[in-house]
């Protein structure tokens, strides 16, 4: 057993349980070719096209007033959505992971619902409630409150599509950590909140980070749902993705890609943080397993 594992770690192969070298090289080359074609090329194209007209044109495109207001709206949306869904994620994970009750798997499935709904449908359902012909439409109009085709609608639709991210990351993490430590803290006299902040939260902090950055990436990048609820009014109800669409449809390709490159950079940062967070979570899980 130990000998096999030692061989695995060195990356050496026992020949009877590995492929001949030519098969290995063929598989690796095909896989890398697929990755290059479908991942690397589109990613590189964003930056190459963004800098197509030079560095100054790139910066000028980013300083354009409509683009700046799109950036502002996107940041505002993220700042509204992420904390709300973070709070929900932690609360839901506490209720689900630390207690047993009937209907738990139904609840988890319901929390996952926004993940499986098409973004266009996600936007549509909010139009059905808050739009002019919707349930609350006449009431909202009477009070001169604009939700659909205005910023609140965008925030609401984004909350919907980013709803599960923190919860679905924290639930399995907290379930795998069990309740032993929290119960020990309680018997030692800690209150509920003390237990949470001193015992639970340090254990889940990397999971929280992971969920938050994924939630943020989706909140800033959401297109379909926001497209339905936004009025597409330049300078006021456009987020960065919508601005990208407008510029692209106007054939301002370099400008479109310049704005898109901001999101692409965000994606790369997200991936980097995600990798670190995943590694840390794995580390902490192997520590708890080692302790058992």
């Amino acid at each position: 057993m130990h000998a096999t594992k030692a061989l695995k770690k060195n990356g050496e192969k026992v020949s009877s349980v590995s492929e001949p070298a030519w098969v290995r090289y063929l598989l690796i080359t095909t896989a890398l070719g697929f990755v290059a074609l479908f991942l690397l090329m589109p990613l590189a194209a964003v930056f190459v096209q963004a800098l197509d007209k030079g560095w100054e044109a790139y910066l000028a495109a980013l300083h354009e007033p409509d683009t700046l207001s799109a950036i502002w709206l996107t940041l505002l949306t993220a700042v509204c959505c992420v904390p709300i869904n973070l709070f929900f994620g932690i609360v839901a994970a506490w209720a689900i992971a630390k207690f047993s009750f009937t209907g738990k798997s139904l609840l988890i499935t319901l929390i996952d619902l926004p993940f499986s709904v098409s973004p266009v449908v996600s936007g549509l359902i909010y139009v059905l409630i808050f739009g002019l012909q919707g349930w609350l439409g006449p009431w909202l109009q009477a009070h001169d409150i604009k939700i659909i085709f205005a910023v609140p609608g965008i925030v609401l639709a984004t909350i919907f599509v980013t709803f599960p991210f923190v919860a679905r990351e924290l639930i399995p993490l907290m379930e795998s950590q069990g309740r032993d430590e929290e119960e020990a803290a309680l018997t030692l006299g800690a209150s509920g909140l003390q237990t949470f902040f001193r015992v639970t939260f340090p254990n889940i902090k990397w999971g929280v980070l992971y969920g938050v950055i994924l939630c943020n990436a989706r909140a800033m990048g959401e297109f379909g749902a926001v497209s339905v609820v936004s009025g597409h009014v330049r300078g006021s109800t456009n987020t960065i993705p919508l601005q990208v669409e407008i510029l692209y449809n106007e054939y301002s390709y370099a400008a479109a890609f310049a704005v898109a490159s901001l999101l692409a950079l965000l994606a790369l940062v997200t991936l980097a943080i995600k990798t670190v967070a995943e590694w840390k979570i794995q580390q902490s899980q192997s520590v708890t397993e080692g302790e058992r």
Binding site: L39, P241, L242, A267, L271
Partner: peptide, 17 residues
Amino acid sequence: ALVDLPFALPTAVAGIT
């Protein structure tokens, strides 16, 4: 790490590129 790019990259950016 890059395999997760389609998760992280906004759909509009993926679309235009």
